[in-house]
């Protein structure tokens, strides 16, 4: 098997960054997320490869929080489209956890299927290579297996790393793109047989089985009121979620020039569904809260066959008022069917 010694990481990154924008899980000041290798300051920033994960998910790389769409000029009655900003820059995300790779899969499902291909997403995604850091130590809020994925395997990861401690990383090329990249850096890999690490068990038992079906009849159930009571309808959960993909389209104009951009939006905001005439189909916080969880646990499953949650536990860790998606699944399951 191929082994990447840990003292070769710097060499590897330096080589990868020559032909692609490389992102590493990093603690940068008060933020932890996937940051560009180019912007890293070794004396200030901390690599988070051995941490469970980082707070800001990698979705920003394939679906930027703010993304230019196109620019235009206008003068009098005339309008000219100037530039369409599709971005095919080669990118490599190094050290993703399985939950985050799977979430990119789900973004693929959204942006590539059902009639239309989102060209902005496609240009980024098709040029992004994913290097999975297999997960052997699930955290206290982890439940990826319950959401239908394996913490150590993935079909869409191009390369899978298994952290074997001092022996280094076991390097597995998992796709054609992964094998091609492996060929280019083979000289820094070693051939050696070592044993895979022993995974620790999940600390939290979660069972998604039947939840989508159960929720189908719970839209008007009174349980949504107490469940949503603590929610302040901020957008933190939706913005740290690696799966949440909703976006807004906005315009900036200055003088005769302007550009249209898209930016993440959140179903938690009242403005999200507010119609021009003033009618809002989801006026209350409870309705927005309900839509968020139903979207994740029921609607997305009905539409695409899998839930819009990969069990990363970020929303659980960062909710200012202690809302917990696991608890919501459990409470939904506990509701009497007739209610």
């Amino acid at each position: 098997m191929k082994i990447l010694k840990k003292n070769q990481l710097d060499t590897l990154w330096e080589r990868l960054a020559r032909n692609a924008e490389l992102y590493l899980p990093t603690q940068k000041g008060d933020q932890s997320g996937f940051f560009s290798y180019k912007t890293l300051k070794p004396e200030k920033d901390t690599l988070m490869l051995d941490a469970l994960n980082v707070y800001l998910s990698p979705k920003n790389i394939v679906l930027p929080q703010t993304e230019m769409m196109y620019s235009f000029t206008h003068q009098g009655q005339e309008i000219n489209l100037e530039e369409v900003y599709e971005d095919p820059t080669p990118r490599i995300i190094f050290g993703l956890r399985s939950c985050d790779v799977k979430s990119i899969d789900r973004l693929d499902t959204v942006f590539f299927t059902r009639g239309f291909v989102d060209e902005y997403y496609r240009s980024r995604r098709e040029n992004t290579l994913l290097i999975l850091n297999a997960c052997y130590h699930p955290g206290p809020n982890c439940f990826c297996e319950a959401m239908g994925l394996s913490p150590r395997e993935s079909e869409s990861a191009d390369i899978i790393l298994h952290d074997a401690g001092e022996e280094g990383y076991i390097w597995v090329a998992n796709t054609e793109k992964g094998r091609e990249l492996t060929g280019n850096i083979e000289d820094i890999l070693e051939e050696k047989e070592i044993s895979y690490p022993q995974p620790r068990p999940f600390t939290r038992e979660v069972d998604y089985t039947g939840v989508a079906e159960k929720l189908k009849d719970m839209f008007s159930h009174p349980i949504w009121h107490p469940l949503s009571d603590p929610c302040i309808n901020c957008g933190i959960c939706t913005y740290v979620c690696p799966n949440c993909y909703c976006f807004d389209i906005q315009v900036k104009t200055r003088g005769e020039e302007g550009y249209r951009y898209r930016c993440w939006d959140s179903c938690m905001y009242g403005e999200y569904t507010m119609m021009a005439g003033g009618h809002n189909p989801r006026e209350t916080g409870m309705e927005r809260f309900r839509n968020r969880f139903l979207h994740k646990l029921e609607f997305f499953t009905e539409r695409y066959g899998e839930p819009l949650c990969t069990g990363c536990g970020r929303c659980i860790a960062v909710c200012p008022t202690g809302i917990n998606i696991i608890e919501i699944m459990e409470k939904a399951k506990g509701v009497e069917p007739s209610a």
């Binding site: 000041g29 933020q31 901020c234 957008g235 933190i236 939706t238 403005e271 200012p320």
Partner: peptide, 25 residues
């Protein structure tokens, strides 16, 4: 670094406007 999640507004007791200026269209 602000991600515009508006948690600071949502959690604030002084932010009690019915329609926040940031939601005006």
């Amino acid at each position: 670094t602000c991600i515009r999640c508006y948690a600071c507004r949502q959690v604030c007791v002084a932010c009690n406007c019915r329609t926040c200026i940031f939601d005006e269209a």
